[in-house]
Simulated scan of single mutants.
Amino acid sequence: MPEASLSDRQFQRLSAFIEGEVGIKMPPVKRIMLEGRLRKRLRALSMSSFDEYVDYVFSRDDGEIVHMIDVVTTNKTDFFREPEHFEYLSDTLLPRQVAQGWGIGSPFLAWSAASSTGEEAYSLAVTFEEFRRTNSSFSYRILGTDISTAVLHTAEKAVYPASRIQPVSQILRKRYFLRSRDRAADLVRVRPEVRQNLLFKRLNLMQERYPLRDLFHVIFCRNVIIYFDRPRQEALLRRLCNYLVPGGYLFLGHSESMASSNLPFESVAPTVYRRLEGVALDGSPPDGSADVSSKQGVFSKQKERW
């Protein structure tokens, strides 16, 4: 029996939905890719045709929408990817801003806004832990978000093939990673004292309002806006700006820029931008359900799961 194929009409419906829901363009050249990835969902649901699957998706089964997004989104990340950002964080940003009181008394808040399988968020945590070695009064919390539930599950487990930590120095590997007792498995896990400072949640960066209560000192949103058209890029950057404290920092990917935006940022290093103080944007972060502040409520529950 031949495999099901995706018709032009089906592809157009799905690509329009994906672009509207996630912001990712799906031009015709991606039809074969989309067809191949969605066949996994047909097999999982014991469906024999894309007609059946598309009807199922557009019946507004939100659970299947989440699964579909999981298989069509691309997640590329590494520990200490674009290392210059982490060097700027440890050598310049933290010493300067902690001297101004950031992270003293209440936690320094960082958001990895497209955290994928967690390597970026844990790289932030290792950077903060290293800073704490000589600044014991410093504390931090990290929120990692992604639209894919599959990658968030990996991030929460914090277990990786040993080959994934090749970019991490030997000293940092010994300090912050545990080797599996089963040497044949060749796995590592981030130490619990590091994991306790992180929270992972599903969040769609394209939604107009985020369920977050806090303002962040640092937001990493790297290699994300390149997938969006200009209006969506502008809208996302504006939303992120609203979630930064005045003087807070936004890190973009190496091929991304704010050059054409009218947002209140100044460039302080390659693809590192500081929100100007005393310049307000229309709107402010709404009240919501996710709390990564010093109140500890969400984080104490997170510890119980670990």
Score class of each variant (00 low, 15 high):
246 P>H: 01
256 E>S: 05
275 R>A: 01
250 L>T: 00
270 P>G: 11
276 L>W: 06
272 V>S: 04
272 V>M: 08
253 G>N: 05
254 H>L: 08
253 G>D: 05
250 L>V: 02
265 F>I: 03
273 Y>N: 02
271 T>M: 12
255 S>F: 09
257 S>W: 05
259 A>D: 13
271 T>P: 12
265 F>A: 00
250 L>K: 00
249 Y>Q: 10
264 P>H: 11
263 L>F: 00
248 G>E: 03
257 S>N: 07
261 S>I: 10
263 L>Q: 03
265 F>L: 06
264 P>D: 11
251 F>C: 02
248 G>Y: 03
252 L>V: 02
246 P>M: 00
263 L>N: 07
247 G>L: 02
258 M>W: 07
273 Y>A: 02
261 S>D: 15
248 G>I: 02
245 V>M: 11
263 L>I: 03
247 G>A: 03
267 S>C: 15
251 F>G: 01
258 M>L: 14
264 P>C: 04
251 F>P: 07
258 M>G: 12
251 F>I: 09
251 F>M: 09
265 F>T: 00
274 R>K: 12
260 S>I: 13
265 F>E: 02
252 L>M: 02
255 S>M: 06
256 E>P: 14
275 R>T: 00
265 F>C: 04
274 R>D: 07
268 V>R: 03
260 S>E: 14
254 H>N: 04
252 L>H: 00
264 P>E: 09
256 E>V: 09
258 M>D: 12
268 V>F: 09
263 L>W: 01
257 S>C: 08
272 V>C: 13
258 M>R: 05
267 S>N: 13
272 V>W: 06
259 A>P: 14
251 F>E: 01
264 P>A: 06
274 R>H: 06
268 V>D: 10
266 E>A: 15
276 L>G: 04
268 V>M: 07
275 R>Y: 05
262 N>M: 10
253 G>T: 05
273 Y>M: 07
245 V>F: 02
254 H>S: 10
252 L>Y: 00
276 L>N: 06
252 L>G: 02
274 R>M: 11
263 L>C: 06
249 Y>I: 13
268 V>K: 01
251 F>Q: 01
266 E>C: 13
253 G>W: 04
261 S>Y: 14
259 A>I: 14
256 E>W: 03
256 E>D: 12
275 R>S: 00
276 L>H: 05
262 N>F: 06
264 P>V: 04
259 A>E: 13
245 V>S: 03
